[in-house]
Amino acid sequence: MSEPLLSIVDLKKHYHTKSLWPFGKKQVIKAVDGVSFEIAPGEVLSLVGESGCGKSTVGRTLTHLEQATSGHALFEGQDFLMMSSSEFRPLRREIQMIFQDPFASLNPRLKIEQTLGEPLFIHGLCSTWEEARNKIAIMLETVGMDPMVMKRHPHEFSGGQRQRIGIARVMILKPKLVIADEAVSALDVSIQAQVLNLIKKLQQDSGISMLFISHDLGVVRHISNRVAVMHEGKIVEIGLKNEIFEAPKHEYTRKLLSSIPRVKTGRELV
């Protein structure tokens, strides 16, 4: 394996519950409790697990939406986990995030071109609106949208279209690592397939690395190269996709896989 793009070492995120009494004992909740993994350039690693297992928290600490308690996260050799927000800002362009809820992740008051254009200016990728609009138009076409939509507001779009716009916002910065947190979970099955294909195609075309966080094992099998199974804040099993799905070693992975309701199609019934 080549030099990893991202390597996480012993990442921890602990929360303290508030006590009823001023000097009462505080409880510690270990949302992420010592997680380590690596992602190679161009690789898709999925983080799979049930709600509350800490998978989303991993993504949020890596994008500095939440401050990690301890650990290291090296991006191209640079440890960014404990950086201050101003130190981390230049890295924001490289590490991007796709969110779950397409209805909540776009600001309802901003036009699409404002939402997509703002990051371009912030990171100095263009200097005039003409330049920005050209880039936005190309990006919108890449995600399968009419460039004319940039003049509109989010409420005019369906969930699938909004998620495409959300993906465009991320890809327009040409990041090296994309963290997708349940990026297709809120979509209907037929739309989910379209968006999933789009993400896969964009990933393969641009060769970016991806941390794909999901609870849906079917989706995970479709998109990833490697899979890490999380349970109660820890990774219980990590390996190549086929190893995890064909020959799961850990008991929890087996339980997850056996719980999934499956369609008995014609071939199996006959």
Binding site: V189, S190, I191, Q192, A193, Q194, L196, N197, K200, D216, L217, G218, V219, R221, H222, N242, F245, L257, I260, R262, V263, K264, T265, G266, L269, V270
Partner: peptide, 30 residues
């Protein structure tokens, strides 16, 4: 499920990523 008669049902089934086999691209309903 033995024989799906409606194109929508077929599309819906093909859109679903499954855990038991690998496909390169999902046949999404446009």
């Amino acid at each position: 499920f033995l024989e799906l008669a409606h194109p929508y049902t077929r599309g819906l089934l093909n859109s679903m990523p499954v855990v038991d086999s690998d496909v390169d691209w999902l046949e999404a309903i446009p």
